[in-house]
Nucleic acid binder design. Structure first.
Lengths: 198, 198
DNA sequence: GGTTTTACATAGCAACGTTATGTATCAATC
DNA sequence: GATTGATACATAACGTTGCTATGTAAAACC
């Protein structure tokens, strides 16, 4: 086969991306061979490296696709809950994040392999841009409305986001004695506990 | 060189272990070549595989060494704070965990590469055995003394341990607006917020 | 319609984890 | 204290991997 049209090339790129997502999720980044991914997509490694430059570049593309899906879902949830109580909105987005954390491909690719493959700086930049700032914004809103205590926002956001992330971990791992409802309720109680004391 | 005495063999094992710890911390598991580790230790790969079976086996040995060091420090901290307030003891062990999370080799090897190399099951088993159970025990004690609300322990422990872990992450990454003191204070406030309401 | 650029295939290189084999020494046995 | 077996490595090679240099044919542009 030789050169295809621009539309065909885009389709090839998508097929490689889909195959990589499956392989990375199933085998992990280290054990997923570029040749196998290319074979799954019906091309050779030449096409893969032509489109993505490196195996890490391919991983980054898959990573950003998954993160984008969570972003869209979280923003949609926030729009729906906007008129209601801000604490409800925060708990709702907690539920959305839990839903994604339970998906095996998201967990393996974004949470586990992401920091290793992308490196600390790049991962922090993406994580901070998409998650931490959102959590901090929610906390800031709660603080403005007097629902939580006056305390530096970023450290609180770090703690709260860690609680959210680990809840996702525990769910994905099937930690005994842990389920979505109880985690959500506990999370709500944790935030309510930050209310100013009378 | 040929065979050494049993003591010499143990020394060789230790030298390989030390070299691996440095390489794993500096380059990450993926980029640390077994040949380089062996060369750093003054042996060839044959000795490395003789002692540890595989590269992953060598990583596991380094991993357990680091985790053991944290365990010792945490237990020592707990013994010191035993007579004081249980919430103080919990905050103290939080500080110990933060101290380890700041160490680059611990962060890279245990927190980042650990789940990837060891796999989800083995990492969960170690993490749960050494960390989650301790946190759950502390929360259970606080609950018995009426210091926090009556709520299922494990989900709370998952949330609290996530907060602790992410605090370590944020510190190790140098997250802006975040430092040890404020994190510790916020952590204390988070736990205090779980107090039963009057 | 000629030129350039794009989209791949093919083959090979260098590095890697791992293993098979060899060998010299320690440690126990007789 | 010679023999035997196990131990502690070195050496070299194998299969796989990420990646690249090269080739080529068709699309895109003028």
């Amino acid at each position: 086969m030789a050169r295809r049209s621009a539309a065909d090339a885009a389709a090839t790129r998508t097929r490689i991306l889909d195959a990589a997502r499956r392989r990375f999720a199933a085998d992990g980044y280290g054990r997923a061979a570029a040749r196998d991914i290319a074979a799954d997509a019906g091309v050779t490694v030449g096409a893969l490296f032509h489109h993505f430059g490196s195996k890490a570049g391919l991983f980054l593309a898959v990573f950003e696709q998954l993160v984008g899906e969570l972003n869209e879902a979280a923003m949609a949830s926030f729009r729906n809950a906007k008129s209601s109580d801000p604490l409800d909105a925060m708990v709702a987005s907690f539920g959305v994040a839990l839903g994604f954390a339970k998906k095996p491909d998201f967990h393996r690719i974004v949470t586990v392999d992401g920091p290793v493959v992308l490196g600390a700086e790049q991962w922090r930049e993406i994580d901070s841009r998409m998650g931490l700032q959102t959590v901090a914004g929610g906390l800031s809103m709660l603080k403005d409305k007097g629902r939580i205590i006056d305390f530096p926002t970023m450290p609180l956001a770090v703690l709260v986001m860690g609680a959210m992330n680990n809840a996702g971990f525990a769910l994905a791992r099937g930690e005994p004695g842990v389920d979505v409802d109880t985690l959500t309720q506990g999370f709500r109680r944790l935030i309510e506990g930050l209310a100013p004391r009378g």
